[in-house]
């Protein structure tokens, strides 16, 4: 951390200006000049970035750089934190998600989130997936609900492993299966965007590979924003990568370019293991 602070003191405002193209055509989410404050402390400093349709965009950066904070802005998860204030514009399909009249419950169905640690409800596998569609009133009959549960578990690549034990507790599954159950739960309410905050960091390599394969397939239907500490994972999964440093969005680019020829010195230093 000392190294980071030292680096920050030597970085001028020009060095903190985002390098690379932050916009995409026909974006799913459009973020403009987003600042996030925890009390007096500024955690995100004027980030402008588009999230495209059917893309996986990776957020990388050292601990404390603001990547998770930014991710949580995208479905207003930060609202739950006392003293957290967000300024700037975040538009989902043109709709301001910070509009005071907007109900955050349907927003969080549209923009689902999967956390670092699998967190299935203490309910059956079936109920874990059925819960969302039921509270959002997305189905009217039991057979419709059955269909949504099966389809979601299929999309999450879990159906074949659990179809014969849907009434058993979700917490009884392995870590990797629990994480895929959480993804199925997210999918079940028909989101447009899935946010993932280090979704594989608690998983073993095989479970990680399964979740990564799933993310790759899900891209066909959803926009996916993934925060990861694994640069190899970012390189494997994403089409675009964004590098954050102490609250600034330093560089955005095509993933291949970022990992072979980054344009900003801070990005290069971070991904080559020269600080952090």
């Amino acid at each position: 951390m000392q190294t980071l602070i030292k680096q920050q003191s030597t970085i001028g405002a020009a060095d903190r200006r985002t390098v690379g193209r932050v916009t995409v055509e026909n974006p799913r989410i459009r973020c403009r000049n987003v600042h996030v404050y925890y009390g007096e402390k500024r955690a995100i400093n004027g980030v402008t970035l588009d999230i495209g349709r059917n893309e996986v965009i990776a957020m990388i950066g050292p601990s404390g750089c603001g990547k998770s904070t930014f991710l949580r802005c995208l479905n207003r998860m930060n609202d739950a934190i006392d003293g957290c204030r967000v300024t700037g514009d975040i538009l989902l399909d043109g709709q301001d998600i910070y509009d005071k009249r907007l109900d955050v419950v349907p927003l969080r169905a549209q923009v689902g989130i999967v956390f670092q640690k699998p967190n299935p409800f203490p309910k059956s596998i079936y109920e874990n997936v059925a819960y969302g569609p039921r509270i959002h009133g997305l189905t009217s009959t039991r057979s419709e609900l059955d269909e949504v549960v099966e389809l979601s578990l299929q999309k999450a690549g879990l159906w074949d492993e659990v179809k014969d034990r849907l009434n058993q507790p979700g917490t009884g599954l392995s870590g990797g299966q629990q994480q895929r159950l959480c993804i199925a739960r997210t999918i079940a309410v028909g989101p447009e965007v899935i946010l993932m905050d280090e979704p594989c960091s608690a998983l073993d390599p095989i479970a990680t590979a399964r979740v990564e394969a799933l993310i790759d397939e899900l891209r066909e239907h959803y926009s996916i924003v993934i925060v990861t500490h694994s640069m190899q994972q970012a390189a494997r999964l994403s089409q675009r990568t964004a590098y954050f440093h102490l609250g600034d969005l330093i560089e955005v680019g095509m993933t291949n370019q970022i990992f072979t020829n980054p344009r900003h010195r801070l990005t290069e230093d971070y991904i080559t293991g020269r600080f952090g």
Partner: peptide, 10 residues
Amino acid sequence: KRQPMAKDLR
């Protein structure tokens, strides 16, 4: 061992 990136990779 290192999975080099960027200029290390180059």
